[in-house]
Design a protein around this nucleic acid. Structure first.
Length: 876
RNA sequence: GGGGAAUUAGCUCAGUUGGCUAGAGCGAUUGCAUGGCAUGCAAUAGGUCAGGGGUUCGACUCCCCUAUUCUCCA
């Protein structure tokens, strides 16, 4: 059964059981500080489990793109070495929100596996939670009984808390789970050893394919468990594993999910798959990572140097590293695999084909830059090896290996490999110590402690957002908690209603204050977390049950709104001027300025930027009123021509913001008429990644200020030039004049230097076999650069020269000594030493090379003494 | 969020206790050679040593701040 059909059958099956089929949420998580990527199917329903969002459908099923590369689930280093670990994978899941529970979940899982996709019942084992005395939890008897009626009791295995009790995090919803395992071994092997002994024992052929989680508890921050009133089902089945089982393969990579890409790698590298263990691992790594990166980029997460973007970059780099070391590819090649990936997954995920050009360019550029990193690390390591050869060391200092890794991004295993090729080893103990230290530093720096929510007005009513119309409102506190990070203590307040806009969609959160007549609490930021609008305050009100007046700082909000509306107009103008390939890739809107990142492949020309400005400003002057539609079904919004990003959440009713022909899905705050923006000015256009450009612009007062600043500068220049008729011409004339004067000055100083040099030559006295010259340099040759120049010239012209020149610049004495090479060698004289000793005379210091040195001091009156001192050292 | 590092010619990079007249390769320009090209030979131009402060007689080099980039940890 091919993979496309498997996915389809799963969704069809649950559709028949009255489940709503929803699309995969984006792999990149927005608005959840605790998570960078979707790492399980349940992520997009977290708000429902936490009871922060209403249930729209009680039964849901889908296939969710997941990425496990950071945090609790981190499989990155395992990928490729076996047949079943992945960074990105699809999770098939069915959910019940307060609807069906253990019985139906178990019945349908069994029915799907044994009747729809027809897995042999005799190869299936299930596990149930065995209980945990420490938590006072009993064995999950219910699950056991429901299984008992379907499967032989000796195939129902008890599992411990680690395997069979699922928790979302340190706190939150949790509950026992029941796993379904399939024994994929051959008949003979199965006869030899009972499969039940291999369940959860790491045997790659006896694998868990489905986990049914029964959410019935909530864990409090204190660690206590409380029973939930509404129970939920959360299941997850690894799509790739299921395909492997159904296609009777020994590895996920042998299924039709990966084989097209692996074939392509084999043909590009001219190494057949199956050639050797090492090259096979590398090909699996590349195939897996390509998928993860391509989907991440399609979901809008570009590789970068921090946070989520950096995680993506690291995945790509791991692929490049394997490609480089084991497949001998030292040129970018991974980007060439995209067509193969699109051929196998493009149907289920159209975003891949639509963004192909961008994805290829980004991957190409990243490959190139990392290959460069590897090259320079390689060079650095080879330098270290040369040193070891000279000193006869056998083992590379672990600190050096760590430095290579930590600072230059050079992987340890590559260091070890190269050392081994040269007959050396590395001290891994030292390396690990450095690594542990690094970890501890980070941990102590990133400590955030959130206390339990204190419910002031229980009932979890949704916060009503009033901010589109109002900047102040009477509000009450629903709940609050304290948050401690490092030495700072802040308070999170959730209100029944609020005029404050929470940071979202690139627009920063509102600031302002809350006042109950007794005290004024300032709100320093507003953020969104798990569907809650959180007002961040620096102190807790004395009376949390009071009625407050909540007030948003309005000048700031108005400035932000101007920038947000201007962002929409900019987006529209860019598409008109550059073409419809322009897509939003990131946006920041704050009171100061706006920043807009978009896909485009060349630097914008000055004319294009100007044209964009003209178009935006024209629309501002046309005074276009806003037309905001709320609660519009997604389909309708698309019909209106709304520019939307991929992967809105399921069943979403969206808000559409329209200014004339500019139609966007947007939850942000806007001005009611474009004329309120006043003025728009692009202040910079730059590149932030391959195929992505960034525009920064200002509006309103800030744009005024920009032009005023320019005016001031021009005014100042004009004044300096005595108000010429044509400023450009005047400056051009000045520049020309300057360069001709400069030439004259150069000639003069060259001439005075030449004269000075001639004078010095005439002053030369011969003492023994040494030609001594000593002189004071005065205007216009009292310049150390000129003196140096003359000294080097004389050194070339006179044999056995001993030259001492003194001068005074800005009331400070200077001394230069030049010796011909012969004197240095034969008489063991050293200008640096001479100058150092002589400089003591005028309270200074100096140094230099044996043949030329200079010194400076503080007391110009003693310059003569210093020169004499220097001369006295001529020896002879 | 924390640690480490980098920023030198158009590009890629050297510059080892603070003083080597800031260099190399590629590229650019010019001239010469060749019927033309690949190319070869020769010469020339090109630098606020990221920006700002400090220490010092003297800073590309040491210290502090800022910006940008890279990298590791979370």
């Amino acid at each position: 059964m091919n993979s496309v059909l498997v996915r389809q059958k799963f969704l069809d099956f649950f559709r028949d059981k009255a489940h709503e089929i929803v699309p995969s949420a984006p792999m990149v998580v927005k608005n959840d500080p605790t998570l960078m990527f979707t790492n399980a199917g349940m992520n997009q329903f977290k708000d429902i489990f936490l009871d922060n969002a209403p249930v729209k459908f009680a039964r849901i099923a889908n296939s969710q793109k997941c990425l496990r590369v950071s945090g609790k689930h981190n499989d990155l280093e395992e990928v490729g070495h076996d047949g079943y670990h992945h960074t990105m994978f699809e999770m098939l899941g069915n959910w019940s929100f307060g609807d069906y529970f253990k019985e139906d979940a178990i019945r349908w899982a069994w029915e799907f596996l044994t009747e729809v996709v027809k897995i042999d019942k005799n190869k299936i084992y299930v596990t149930i939670f065995e209980g945990d005395p420490a938590e006072a939890l009993e064995q999950d008897r219910e699950a056991y009984d429901f299984w008992k009626s379907r499967i032989a009791e000796d195939r129902i295995l008890p599992g411990n808390k680690k395997d069979n009790f699922w928790e979302m995090g340190d706190s939150g919803p949790c509950g026992p789970c029941s796993e379904i395992h399939v024994d994929m071994r051959s008949d003979e092997e199965r006869k030899k050893k009972d499969g039940r002994e291999l369940v959860n024992k790491g045997d790659p052929r006896v694998i868990e394919i489905w986990n049914l989680v029964f959410i019935q508890y909530n864990r409090r921050a204190s660690g206590e468990l409380e029973l939930l009133s509404k129970k939920h089902v959360d299941t997850g089945m690894g799509f790739e594993r299921l395909c492997m089982a159904l296609q009777n393969k020994t590895s996920n990579y042998d299924t039709d999910v990966f084989q097209p890409v692996i074939h392509e790698i084999a043909s590009l590298t001219r190494i057949p798959y199956g050639n050797s263990e090492k090259t096979d691992i590398a090909m699996r790594v590349v195939a897996d990572h390509l998928r993860a990166i391509a989907f991440a980029i399609a979901d809008g997460q570009l590789p970068s140097n921090a946070k989520a973007g950096y995680v993506i970059r690291r995945i790509l780099r791991r692929a490049v590293r394997y490609n480089y070391t084991f497949l001998q590819q030292n040129k970018p090649v991974i980007y060439k695999l995209l067509p193969a990936l699109i051929a196998s997954m493009g149907n289920a995920f159209p975003e891949l084909a639509l963004q192909r050009n961008l994805i290829e360019r980004v991957i190409f550029e990243e490959e190139q830059s990392f290959l460069h990193t590897l090259e320079s690390g390689d060079k650095r390591l080879k330098d270290g090896i040369e040193l070891m050869k000279k000193s006869g060391q056998q083992e590379l200092n672990g600190k050096i290996a760590f430095e290579l890794y930590d600072t230059y991004g050079f992987p340890l295993d590559l260091t070890e490999l190269i050392l081994k090729e040269n007959g050396f080893t590395v001290n891994k103990g030292e390396f690990d110590r450095e690594m542990t230290e690094q970890r501890n530093r980070s941990k102590s720096a990133a400590q955030v402690e959130s206390a339990d929510w204190v419910m002031v007005r229980p009932g979890n009513e949704q916060t009503e957002f009033l901010g589109y119309e109002h900047l102040r409102a009477e509000v009450k506190i629903n709940r609050y908690r304290s948050v401690t990070l490092k030495d700072k203590k802040l308070y999170h307040l959730v209100l029944n209603r609020t005029p404050f806009y929470a940071e979202s969609g690139g627009q920063v959160g509102d600031v302002g204050y809350m006042d109950d007549g007794e005290e004024k609490i300032s709100i320093v930021n507003t953020i969104k977390e798990h569907g809650l609008v959180i007002h961040v305050a620096d102190k807790l009100p004395v009376d949390t049950s009071a009625v407050f007046e909540a007030v948003v700082t309005d000048g700031v909000r108005e400035a932000t709104a101007r920038n947000h509306t201007a962002t929409h107009l900019l987006h529209q103008a860019l598409r008109e001027v550059l073409g419809s390939h322009v897509e939003q890739k990131g946006s920041l809107v704050n009171p100061e300025y706006l920043r807009f990142d978009f896909s485009h492949f060349q630097k914008m020309t000055a004319e294009e930027i100007r044209e964009v400005e003209v178009r935006v400003n024209r629309r501002i002057r046309n005074s276009i009123s806003s037309n905001v539609l709320t609660e519009i079904p997604m389909e309708e919004a698309r019909k209106m021509g709304a520019m939307a990003l991929f992967g809105e959440k399921y069943g979403d009713h969206v808000r559409v913001v329209q200014f004339g022909d500019s139609v966007e899905l947007c939850g942000g705050t806007h001005v009611d008429n474009t004329s309120r923006i006043g003025l728009f000015k692009v202040v910079s256009e730059s590149s932030i990644a391959a195929g992505i450009r960034r525009i920064e612009a200002v509006t309103g007062d800030k744009a005024d200020a920009w032009y005023r600043d320019l005016e001031d500068k021009l005014g100042a220049v004009e004044q300096l030039l005595n108000h010429p008729q044509d400023m450009v011409k005047a400056i051009g004339g000045l520049m020309e004049e300057k360069s001709s004067l400069q030439k004259q000055v150069d000639n003069f100083s060259r001439e005075s230097a030449r004269l000075f040099k001639e004078r010095l030559k005439q002053q030369a006295t011969v003492s023994g076999d040494i030609t001594v010259i000593s002189a004071l340099a005065e205007e216009p040759v009292n310049d150390m650069a000129i003196i140096k120049d003359i000294a080097f010239q004389l050194k070339g012209e006179i044999d056995n020269l001993f030259l001492v020149i003194g001068t005074v610049v800005n009331d400070k004495p200077f001394l230069a000594v030049a010796l011909s090479d012969k004197l240095v060698q034969e008489k063991k004289l050293h200008a640096g030493e001479i100058v150092k000793t002589a400089a003591c005379e005028f309270e200074g210091g100096g140094g230099g090379q044996p043949f030329f040195a200079n010194a400076g001091g503080k007391n110009p009156a003693k310059l003569n003494l210093a020169m004499e001192k220097a001369l006295s050292m001529a020896g002879s």
